[in-house]
Design a protein around this nucleic acid. Structure first.
Length: 580
RNA sequence: GGGGUUGUAGCUCAGUCGGUUAGAGUGCCGGUCUGUCACACCGGAGGUCGCGAGUUCGAGUCUCGUCAGCCCCGCCA
């Protein structure tokens, strides 16, 4: 390995192999920066120490050729040290050169001066092997390896068994679109790739593997984002005879083990917020607690405000919520408009605001306020108030977006660099367009106190579900699961499934649960996202060796491709004509 | 599915108001060069301006469509 050579190695005769990173040909002397995974070292060619044939040969070597050199480690001459290089004090004086492999001129450079821009990502993906030679990407994949290894070791130490679950599985309804795999033996039938090993790990609990984990690949056929790939990796965990606290404590220990590797602070135990509280104070179920800004409720204190927009929302059952920014009056109209645009993008019709100066309150909201009313909500001279009025389902996402925008525009200083939080007690159901859907998945154990309300008031039923949030990013989520078949049936019924559908889709799970199922629960952590955040990567693509584009294409190998006629025949499939 | 944005030499980019032969740096090729390290210097090659229509006397530049990358919304139990 080339990167570890130091002054202490002087005089050693050895052979090194690697890639030609840079070359500097001075005619009589020639220098090559030789690279391998461990780093760089300068190797030097000169007529006084290099064999004549090798010397001649050396002028032919080009970038990214793979070479092997024999020589002696020597201190560099006085004044020729390179202090910004780990091996900068030494070099290998080459006696013999062997070119192991000629490289074509690389389409994208591996070498990059510090001020050079990266090649376009399209090219980086097309020529991925070259891109992966870059130190930054190699370091990310090495860190990923270390994190996975630490996770395995930690889970093992705590008595968890890694069990692999099928990749060819049964399609499950709801949730994301499945990737389907046609069956040749059973024409017209398809396997699905797992969106997660959720049901399998519950089956393993019933089977008595009371502590399970898996570094599991998951697949979801949905449109992609910077932080979303069609296939991704979860640290999947499940345990029997446990309470929520047990799982959170295990995962805190796991995160601590991972964070230590990455130089991230993870002071455990992590604070907890109920979902209700999180929505109330931050408008989001994954609040970024690096920043202190919190939502306030002024429904009461604005009750006498004669402003039609607010009155109509409150009369309709809405609330008046927003942010008070001490000293925020300095924000320009343009900056406030920028924040309002974020509010609109989050679905709000607009954002109400008010400033206060010596001459009183002003702004779309402020101008309706008397001195006394301004005092009551705490709007002092030089302050700014930003308000959203309406149902929580509107104001929460709005104010969450406003909060993010304010953090940016005010350049708000974080109160901590690494903010961890558990958000607990998520509702079991989401209401979307009047339809009930499982807010997490349909196997979440409801709070015992709320089970009686399942049919009468499903929206109010809290689940034993929790999310782990780091700096505003969801790292993972889990819950206790339902282990009683009857309760599971009830939930599925509430979700609108017929007895027939329940049997067809979940019969195998219910069948398992009735075989004597232990109470159990678990969590799944997004490995890729952890690596992304811990390496401060702009995209998940940088944490994966061979990622897909946002259109789910693999540019290097060129997947997907149309199938051959014979393949289709064998599968009993026929392609529909495209376009229409 | 929708919105935005980018696409000019191998790579990173410039290209004014629509006007003559589309430039720079780097890489590549050839040459000089014995302590360089973004080596230096001299010379050279290299272009389907993503693709297709249209407007125009004339399009890298304007219009429409399309493809691809990226960002976002929808979607992601």
């Amino acid at each position: 390995m080339v990167g570890g050579l130091r002054a202490g190695n002087e005089g050693e005769a050895l052979a090194l192999a690697g890639w030609v990173h840079r070359r500097r040909d001075l005619g009589g002397l020639l220098f090559v920066d030789l690279r391998d995974r461990s780093g760089l070292i300068q190797v030097s060619f000169g007529p006084d120490w290099t064999e004549a044939a090798s010397m001649e040969h050396a002028h032919d070597i080009g970038h990214e050729d793979v070479i092997r050199v024999e020589g002696v480690v020597a201190a560099r001459p006085e004044g020729a040290h390179k202090d910004d290089m780990a091996t900068g004090g030494v070099e290998l004086r080459v006696t013999r050169l062997e070119i192991l492999s000629d490289a074509r001129t690389p389409e994208i450079p591996v070498y990059r001066a510090s001020e050079d821009e990266l090649p376009a990502e399209e090219l980086r993906l097309q020529h991925r092997v070259l891109d992966l030679r870059r130190r930054e990407l190699q370091q990310k994949l090495v860190l990923r390896h270390k994190l996975v290894l630490a996770a395995r070791n930690y889970m093992d130490r705590n008595g968890f068994i890694e069990v692999e679950t099928p990749i060819l599985t049964k399609a499950t309804p709801e949730g994301a679109r499945d990737y389907l795999v046609p069956s040749r033996v059973h024409k017209g039938e398809f396997y699905a790739l797992p969106q997660s090993p959720q049901i399998y790990k519950q089956l393993l609990m019933v089977a008595g593997f009371d502590r399970y984990f898996q570094i599991a690949r998951c697949f979801r056929d949905e449109d992609l984002r910077a932080d979303r790939q069609p296939e991704f990796t979860q640290i999947d965990v499940e345990a029997s005879f446990v309470e929520v606290d047990d799982i959170l404590r295990w995962i805190e220990g796991l995160i601590l083990a991972l964070a230590e590797i990455s130089d991230v602070d993870a002071p455990i135990p992590f604070p907890r917020l109920t979902w209700q509280e999180s929505m109330e104070r931050y408008g989001s179920d994954r609040p970024d607690l690096r920043y202190q800004l919190e939502i306030e409720d002024w429904t009461e204190s604005t009750a006498d405000l004669d402003f039609r927009v607010i009155r109509s929302q409150v009369d309709a059952g809405g609330r008046v919520r927003g942010f008070l920014l001490k000293g925020g009056g300095g924000l320009s109209r343009r900056q406030i408009d920028g924040v309002e645009n974020e509010a609109k993008a989050a679905g709000a019709p607009g954002l109400l605001w008010g400033k206060r100066s010596d001459e009183g309150a002003s702004g779309p909201l402020g101008k309706f306020m008397s001195e006394e009313q301004a005092d009551r909500i705490g709007l002092g001279i030089g302050d700014l108030v930003l308000v959203s009025a309406g149902p929580d389902s509107l104001t929460s996402p709005t104010l969450s977006a406003v909060r993010d925008a304010l953090v940016a525009v005010l350049e708000l200083q974080p109160v901590r660099e690494h903010a961890w939080v558990w958000v607990t007690d998520f509702p079991v159901f989401d209401e979307e367009d009047g339809m009930l859907a499982a807010s997490h998945h349909p196997f979440v154990m409801p709070h015992t106190d709320d089970i009686d309300d399942l049919e009468a008031d499903p929206a109010s039923v809290r689940g034993t579900a929790y999310d782990l949030v780091y700096n505003g990013t969801e790292f993972g989520s889990g819950s206790l699961r339902i282990h009683e078949p009857e309760l599971q049936r009830r939930i599925l019924r509430v979700l609108g499934l017929s007895e027939d559908e329940i049997e067809k889709k979940f019969g195998f799970l219910l069948n398992a649960l009735s075989a004597g199922a232990p109470p159990h629960g678990g969590i799944a952590l997004g490995m890729d996202r952890i690596v992304q955040r811990f390496t401060d990567s702009p995209s998940l693509r940088d944490t994966v060796a061979f990622p897909k584009t946002t259109a789910a294409r693999a540019l290097f190998e060129g997947a997907p491709t149309p199938p051959g006629e014979s393949a289709l025949d064998e599968l009993g499939l026929q392609l529909k004509a495209q376009d229409s």
